[in-house]
Design a protein around this nucleic acid. Sequence first.
DNA 1: ATGAAAGCGCTAACAA
DNA 2: TTGTTAGCGCTTTCAT
Lengths: 339, 339
Amino acid sequence: MVRIKDIARKAGVSPTTVSNVIHGNNKKVSRETVEKIQKLLKEMDYVPSMGAVMLVGGNSRLIGVLAGEPGGEDRHREGNAFANELIRALESEIYKRNYYMLLHFVSTAEEGIQFAATWNVEGLVTLGFSARDNEKLQLKCRAPVVSVDVYYEKQRVANVGLDDREAGCQMADYLFGCGHRELGFLADNDVGVDHERWEGVLLSGRKRGIKETEIRHIIIPQNIQERKMYYEKHLKELAQTADVLFFASDYYAAEAVAYLQDMGLSVPCDISVAGFDDSEAALLCRPRLTTMRQDNSRKGALAVKKLFEYIEGTRGRTLDAKLKAELVVRDSVADRKCI
Amino acid sequence: MVRIKDIARKAGVSPTTVSNVIHGNNKKVSRETVEKIQKLLKEMDYVPSMGAVMLVGGNSRLIGVLAGEPGGEDRHREGNAFANELIRALESEIYKRNYYMLLHFVSTAEEGIQFAATWNVEGLVTLGFSARDNEKLQLKCRAPVVSVDVYYEKQRVANVGLDDREAGCQMADYLFGCGHRELGFLADNDVGVDHERWEGVLLSGRKRGIKETEIRHIIIPQNIQERKMYYEKHLKELAQTADVLFFASDYYAAEAVAYLQDMGLSVPCDISVAGFDDSEAALLCRPRLTTMRQDNSRKGALAVKKLFEYIEGTRGRTLDAKLKAELVVRDSVADRKCI
DNA sequence: ATGAAAGCGCTAACAA
DNA sequence: TTGTTAGCGCTTTCAT
């Protein structure tokens, strides 16, 4: 391994000078020395020893990405695919800034805290963490924290997410606008993101004078087997009493379409279905799924951008940043006004 | 941050002793001292400074995971989902061994080499790297390298993968066994994994006296738009001339089923379809997809296991490790013998 | 059983 | 413009 002192010796200068050149402190070094050393740096394949860098300064050039396990093993794999796109975007943005990503799938905030301390990370991005855990993390870590897709009661942690309420409302607006009246909103939980989407649906209904009690809010099991059983028991009746089923994810929507089909029901003739995310499940689904598109790559990029604003102290904390979702109309929702 | 010397001071011993306790060199330390220090370590939340650890020893406790970008942006997102499951498994196994995962989506071997050197990683796992790039990497890095899903001409790099040829053969056996005769194998390339699967198909045909020229091998475009155009032009004719279409991934299979359906063709009545992977696309597809299941979590775990065998010098290099795929019969392939 | 001291590679304060 | 030096936190001889 080539060290700074090797370069220094070869160049006939001191390590300090080399270090200065490396860090672009070119005011302190003569033009020719700079050039000579830069050439040597290239030729000899100098690579910094991050151990030393970490030890001496506080700068590890490491960003920790902490991914919580939402709902554990049973949860459908869609969540993974989501995290995946995000993680790719995260890494790419982090690397662009000459930082490195330490990724850890973590179960407790404590583990995350220890992780951050061990590596002296300069920043932290969390996915699938509860509000509480994020607050704990922020409290115990000196590195700035940016969470993704979290809703706080009283926001103390920087967050990047989607305007889920607006998105839920937008879809419901569209659905009601298509002449549907009996709407069911289906999600596998009622906190955070999914709760906001539901609130959005409610909002849309209220605008039309539809009462909360008239809109069905159904929590479906996370476990695939249990969900299957649930559908076997309830889906048919649901399809008969509702005009449209709005799912909190494309995967669930596509799955339901498949089950509906198994029961001899046709989408959107017998019942309309809408999803959320515009993931590949929406494309594979027949009929093609009407859904709310969200851009996870952009979300990841924004999270990193905010994180570095905090790291560099570029600007005061704007705690909340929300992206907009986009309605994608395809074939799974019937327009009842046209019939 | 609590340092070793803080613990030492509080315990009234030297840093050396604390270090010894931390590393379980308990023969050198008296029972009571060990206990006292261990208690202190817990109480004071001691966390090692990895910078110092890296600097002093060669051990960074870092495993680099290098994920190549297979085919660039255009490629369908299925590949990501695959990498995702694998990456989760990788991280979990790495963390289990008290190591940490540095993840980088990389485009060139050179970038990987620099990455490895900068962080002094103790091992490297590569995904989606070419054989050449893996060899380069191995040559230039002192850390052991384990690649995933690579086929080498002359194997010099440790690899963990699936027995793709066997798997391809097994599926073809099944398909032929169902009475199908006109088989088409569709993939978006003909190297590595997909080539092996194709070889497996050929093998199966040969066993039955079916000549290579009788089996169709179709390379479909990676880009979704181009693929769509390709299908619009050719799929109908393909469906008329073939009995069964065997795709190298479930995503492609499910997509084709959808297009077939769009054209008014019914699977498996008009044509049978089979996939590969047993990903969620297989479950969402109607009819449910007959496919070859592979366990990516197991693959990831095995890769890490092998890597650590090399790191620890536990055993001589067995360069190649192959998992078996499993035939999952569902509803997308007709049994022509029964008709 | 315990401790003192050297040194890993680098940066930054200070000196020249 | 360049060099000297101290020190980051830890492990590892080598003494005691």
